[in-house]
């Protein structure tokens, strides 16, 4: 199966809820509206994308947008296993609540906690949303957002 065939299959399954498709190197990103994300994830899982490799959030302060992308792939289907499909959505930076995909992919359990602590986005429906790696006071700073600037210490004048 070639990558264009995979994209065709996804287009067929998700239909008109797709907002846009962006191709990168070694990955294809499928963007859907945030309120359709659970439905889209279920359909993707039915296609054979049985687990997610990561949940990635990217901050674009200039466009006032945060993108959240679930990179899904397959263990059960050998043909699909080499492809990575990023199912994602864009939200305004001040959005506080988005739906959790824990009910679709159990793998999202720890990964959504990581996005929660680093970007301060609450995943509704997540059974145990707490910071994973950071301590709560650090997590409140939303450290992976672009407006958090790391101050590096030096004994020399810069």
């Amino acid at each position: 199966m070639s990558s264009s065939e995979v994209i065709e299959k996804i287009k067929e399954a998700l239909g008109d809820i797709i907002e846009s498709i962006e191709e990168g190197k070694g990955v294809v990103h499928v963007f859907v509206p945030v309120d359709k994300i659970v439905e889209a994830a279920r359909k993707l899982k039915e296609l054979g994308f049985d687990h997610i490799k990561d949940v990635t959030a990217i901050d674009y302060p200039k466009e006032n947008v945060i993108k959240i992308i679930y990179h899904a792939s397959s263990y059960g289907n050998v043909e699909l296993s080499k492809y990575i499909v990023g199912l994602g959505y864009s939200i305004p930076r001040d959005t506080e609540r988005v739906p959790s995909l824990y009910s679709v992919w159990t793998t999202a359990d720890f990964q959504e906690r990581e996005v929660y602590e680093a970007f301060g986005i609450v995943f509704e429906g997540h059974p145990d949303l707490r910071p994973l790696l950071l301590s709560p006071p650090v997590a409140e700073l939303k450290p992976l957002r672009k407006d958090f600037v790391v101050k590096e210490e030096t004994i020399f004048r810069k």
Binding site: G24, K25, V27, K53, I84
Partner: peptide, 11 residues
Amino acid sequence: LKVPKGKAYAK
């Protein structure tokens, strides 16, 4: 080094 605009996924 400047890397051209784009996104890549590697494993």
